[in-house]
Amino acid sequence: MEVLNLSLWVRFSRGGQEGFGTLEGERIAVHTGDLFAGAAPTGATLALAEVTLLAPVRPGAFLGLWNNFHAAAAKQGNAIPDFPLYFLKTPRCVIGPGEAIRPPSGYEGKVLYEGELGLVIGKRVSNADEAEAAAAIFGLTCVNDVTALDLLLADAAFPQWARAKGADTFGPIGPAIATGLDWSALSVKVALNGRVRQDYPLSDMIIPPARIVSLISREMTLHPGDVIACGTSLGALPMRPGMQVAVTIEGIGTLENAYASAA
């Protein structure tokens, strides 16, 4: 894994107040200002044990890709896309590390985890070429693109992507945003109760990050804080209440959430 001046940005709450900073071992160097436009260290630090980590970003737009890995496309018999096949998850579904994933009230069907690489946009980007798009990616994070599978095709006339993927708690992001990582050298691992169920290389991606951002920006202006989940590969399976699901990407960390019963 190539590291190019790695920083790990986190958001946290402490005593009813929210803040952000860089994670340095077991401490957070607190910053002030705008994460994407002039964040400055305050000189203060906090012990990680003193705070609750939040999702490291509050996206204005939260996009997810489908069918973006060669291995999964080959197994499922899907054609290789030329343009990102994307859907929108509501930003209101976002939760942070340690928060519980819950199915919608009354839903008794399958709920899948999908471990993915998330791209965090750092500057406004519209109709960009790939070099401009690459420069607009602030950093990388872990995403669990949770899906209520039985809702997706509940109506044969209308695939319900937003409903299936946008329920409350269906967008875990975190634990940090890493800058300075080479995405192509990374792998995504997902463990259920400690047993690895997904383990796939990001180098198998069909449409790579800079091209994803470039192509989407032709149709949709992206803004600082927007998140794009790059799609998942083989091994996405249903969860059962009581399970712990952990998405790990080396250099970013582990995003762990419990899957609980409906509230």
Rank of each mutant, 00 (worst) to 15 (best):
E2I: 09
S7L: 13
V10I: 11
V10A: 02
R11S: 01
R11D: 04
G21Y: 06
L23W: 11
E24M: 09
G25C: 10
A29Y: 03
H31N: 14
T32I: 09
T32E: 14
T32Q: 12
L35T: 04
F36R: 05
A37I: 06
A39P: 09
A39R: 13
G43E: 05
G43S: 06
L46S: 12
L46P: 13
L48A: 07
E50Q: 14
E50V: 02
E50H: 09
E50W: 10
T52N: 08
T52E: 04
L53Q: 02
G60A: 11
G60Y: 07
A61Q: 14
L63Y: 11
L65S: 00
L65H: 00
W66E: 08
W66H: 06
F69Y: 14
A73Y: 10
K75A: 09
N78G: 01
N78T: 07
I80R: 09
P84L: 03
T90I: 05
P91K: 03
V94K: 00
G96C: 01
E99N: 04
A100V: 11
I101L: 06
R102S: 12
P103D: 03
G106P: 07
E108H: 06
G109S: 02
K110A: 09
L112V: 06
L112N: 12
Y113C: 03
L117G: 01
V120L: 01
I121N: 03
R124Q: 11
V125E: 06
S126D: 13
D129R: 02
E130T: 00
E130K: 01
A131P: 00
A133W: 04
F138Y: 12
T141D: 00
C142Y: 01
C142K: 02
N144Q: 11
N144P: 10
D145Y: 01
V146N: 01
T147D: 10
A148T: 07
A148G: 12
L151D: 04
D155L: 08
A157P: 10
W161Y: 14
W161F: 14
R163C: 08
A164Y: 10
K165C: 08
K165W: 08
D168H: 13
F170D: 03
F170C: 09
G171C: 06
A178L: 07
T179N: 01
T179G: 00
T179M: 02
S184K: 15
A185S: 15
L186E: 07
A191V: 05
G194R: 10
G194P: 14
R195I: 14
Q198I: 13
Q198H: 13
Y200T: 14
S203K: 15
S203H: 11
D204N: 13
I206D: 00
P209A: 04
A210R: 05
A210E: 08
V213S: 02
M220L: 15
L222I: 07
L222N: 04
P224R: 03
I228D: 08
I228T: 03
A229Y: 03
C230Y: 02
T232R: 11
T232M: 12
T232C: 13
S233Q: 10
L234Q: 12
P238Q: 09
V245M: 11
T248N: 14
T248G: 06
E250L: 10
G253Q: 05
N257C: 10
N257R: 11
A258M: 15
